[in-house]
Amino acid sequence: MNLIDQIKALKEEALRLIDKAVDLEKLNSVRVEFLGKKGKLKAILKTLGKLSPEERKQVGQLANTVKEELEERIKQKEEELKKQALAEELKKNKVDITLPHSWIEVGSAHPVISTMFEIVETFVAMGFSVAQGPEVEKEAYNFDMLNIPPDHPARDMQDTFFINKEGYVLRTHTSPVQIRAMLTQKPPISIVAPGRVYRKDADPTHSPMFHQIEGLLVDEGITFRDLKGILKIFLETTFGKDIPIRFRPSYFPFTEPSAEVDIGCTVCKGSGCRVCKDTGWLEILGCGMVDPNVFDAVGIDWERYTGFAFGLGVERIAMLKYQINDIRLLFDNNMKFNHQFKGIR
């Protein structure tokens, strides 16, 4: 067999072995066997000297081509094997992608605070500022300056908690924040005041502590129709575009005219159910035009300015929204309750 045939045979053998190699180690031994310093190809080339220059050139060229071919082939195989090895490695370390995650769980929002913030943001978006006041409030701000004199039957509407601090009570509503705002700012005034309030009352629909949001807009030219406009925006934002709204004249000492606002029952859509006591309507907030006596108390000229005020109970809205049937659940803080509210804001 001449050298050319030998090289060709060597190539065939090498290719066969490369193909057969099952891992990098085997492949490497093939490389050493054929292409190494003491490899088979080198061995053949050592006999090159015996040949004529012509033949030498021919054989040399062939040997080089074969070398390159084999190297290329080994490289290819190497990549293949690496890929394979990696795939195996990955497979070996596979994850059950359905295992529970080990990151922290996101926390839950409290439905009342969530509802309160959402409502406040609706008014903030309309341009109202957020105001605040203390929960231990001056009796004068909670009652007298809101046109609720001592011994007025309206004080019966709100059963008050008295404290060991003369002249102060736990505020029974957020309305005193109106007084604070009007005593510290000159009109125009536009505020919403969210906060905790207290009344001596406890049953499935009443809690001795609950949350209210108060709103007040005082400026020249503010009318009852403006009040209706602002509340309509709020109610539609909160309960949906087509929610029926009804204004019923009512009485609050600090507004005149006063109204209760009802919305169409969100549970039965007006056909009558237990939630709306078969009336088809739900009482949702109280409102009215600021009473001139209140303006007098804070030194605003009623002949020049008018204003409207409204107040709403946050728990009621939260309970409607999430169909919660007992107000006490809101303040028990049983995590089995709270965890139901992870997805809300």
């Binding site: 536009s190 009852f224 209706k228 602002i230």
Partner: peptide
């Protein structure tokens, strides 16, 4: 009161805090 149509007041910007 229910029959009054709504109007939309300008929220006074100078009051905005």
């Amino acid at each position: 009161l229910n029959k009054l149509s709504e109007t939309y007041p300008k929220i006074p910007t100078q009051a905005f805090r």
